[in-house]
Design a protein around this nucleic acid. Structure first.
Lengths: 342, 342
DNA sequence: TTGTACGCGTTATCAT
DNA sequence: ATGATAACGCGTACAA
């Protein structure tokens, strides 16, 4: 079955390819009569321009790359959802958000970012949590490909950060004010193995926790901290087991590693007959949808995910379309949501 | 900053464009020496082939379209996740799964499927829940673009279905055997408004429910059924309110509209002090991740989502790569997962 | 409005 | 056995 190209339309309409192209791209220099005729034939023949050909000619990709580490973590997919939602709402780049995932290895990340840049797979790149090298940023700047960082800040980029320090500080402070004495932290790893990527949020949250404890004169030591790697439900269970061995009179946990992990803690606690919040208070992080549906509903630090996604997308678009002159660096404050686990 | 093309590589390596291309595509008719030289220059100059150009020349899109209705429903995104996971695992089409969403309007759906077909945005299409018209299928067949249906079956396509009838039958049967007397059903709408798409699963599940009730001689009427549109948590709450008005002695609900809705029911029941499962037994559908984390953990009909995604993806790939001669139609059986709500 | 160069690889055909 | 030449894929946009 013969494929229909712009040439076929042109021939049948008795005009040139250029005219057809101009009609399809809404140029106004075409006579109404011609336009009508072309459009009717386009519809009649079910003609749609060949994507790759169109993009090649336009020197665009009409896509935005979304680069993140590969985790099942709800936070990542929620951010992606928020970006897609925004695209859908303003009706731009609707099918043009392409998720790429590194596996947390630095090499892979660099390679991937280069590939996106030089193969022109995208007209802008949004990078979540990962931190590109200075060298990469330079190359992006030279090629004038906008790059938007979420959770990191570098010059040569646009950036959106949530104040992780404050989020952790607030949560910890609240537990202290609730007169908890043995407060523990579950956190992402802050000292990843060689050639793995660091997660800046884990470091900031740890600092927020420690400062709150110190400023309000609560004892703690490194024993009070458990580190987890993959942000899973199972790891939450294990973390609680570990704490119970080290600190039998534990009475509060701030789970900076996310609500999913916190849910694991709750599950395990319930298996042991530990009462929440009486015996053990818990605050999670992210405020995922399931948090408020739990029994008991989980207190959590909410990141304004919708807003982050919206901002990232809008900056990307503005930047691609040349409306952004200077670098944009935004910090958003998180919110402590109190429910029944504290 | 000048963009680097295959020509630049060729010149610098003292060979022709064709040779560079052949090296990059692993043709074996290139001398090792030449190959080495080309590769080293490619790396040195950070050359990556231009995507659109490559795809245009190859007459491929290297993408798979995933078409579904736009819902926040976990089922949809879980299927998509499963497909992407599979792509990742076998390392094919990793960034090539493009989600498209109709808004449930028939017109939009047809238009979208045509556009994907004729603009060659994808080399295969996976359609979830939606049912294309015969006409569209014919056009796909003519153009030899493989189309894979999930939850529908038509000739001219490949298809993967989960046995919704059995799923509903099992769940209902179980409630009956637990000696429940006033069993109600929450279901997706089976008679959608004009020019909206029907959801075949809702119809099949209703039939499974009704047959189980009839075969086991349990009374019920249309009063025992609530229909919901958007599969949300909130709708679950409302559905329970409605039931309580109509059927005060309700003692079981099979929520064929999914676990999220079932979670709404549970929440509302707990607000009223209704004991689960003593006063009210509940079975959900889909067995989403949150189901087993709830308190009490939710009984549910599990759809083997991983497997569905894997099958859909594999059929798409096999079909694209010409390894599939006949149509493939697969039916998968669901599984009843019993937890604490029954 | 039209003719045509252009964007950038791929691959079939030809040459050594 | 290797590699070069040139046609091709299909729109877009500028000069005429």
């Amino acid at each position: 079955m013969k494929k229909i190209t712009i040439k076929d339309i042109a021939k049948k309409a008795g005009v040139s390819k250029a005219t057809v192209s101009m009609v399809l791209n809404n140029y106004d220099r075409i006579a109404d009569e011609t336009r009508e005729k072309v459009l009717s034939i386009v519809k009649e023949m079910n003609y749609y321009p060949h994507e790759s050909a169109r993009l090649l000619a336009k020197k665009k990709s009409e896509a935005i790359a979304f680069v993140s580490a590969r985790f099942a973590a709800p936070f990542i997919s929620n951010i992606l959802d928020a970006i897609e939602q925004r695209a859908f709402n303003i009706n731009k780049y609707i099918h043009g958000i392409i998720p790429f995932s590194t596996r947390n290895e630095k090499e892979v990340k660099e390679e991937l970012l280069r590939k996106i840049l030089y193969s022109r797979k995208a007209d802008a790149v949004i990078v979540l949590t990962l931190k590109p090298s200075e060298e990469i940023i330079k190359e992006y700047n030279q090629r004038k490909l906008p790059i938007i960082l979420i959770e990191n800040e570098m010059s040569g980029t646009h950036s959106i950060r949530v104040n992780n320090y404050n989020g952790a500080y607030m949560a910890t402070e609240h537990l202290i004010k609730k007169a908890r004495k043995n407060i523990c932290l579950i956190n992402g790893i802050t000292h990843p193995p060689e050639n793995f990527d660091i997660n800046p949020t884990a470091i900031e949250r740890k600092k927020g926790f420690e400062d709150a404890m110190r400023n309000l004169n609560v004892n703690y030591s490194e024993k009070n901290i458990e580190y987890i790697e993959n942000y899973t439900f199972e790891e939450g269970k294990i973390a609680l087991d570990n704490f119970l061995k080290k600190i039998p009179d534990i009475d509060a946990i701030f789970c900076a590693a996310g609500d999913l992990v916190a849910m694991g803690v709750i599950k395990r606690a319930q298996e042991f007959g530990i009462k929440i919040p009486d015996d053990l208070a818990i605050i999670g992080y992210d405020d995922i949808m399931a948090a408020k549906l739990l029994n008991p509903p989980l207190s959590s630090v909410r990141q304004p995910i919708e807003e982050i996604g919206k901002l990232a997308f809008d900056i990307a678009v503005d930047s691609m379309e040349g409306r952004l002159k200077e670098e944009k660096h935004i910090t958003i404050e998180p919110e402590l949501i109190l429910r029944a686990t504290t």
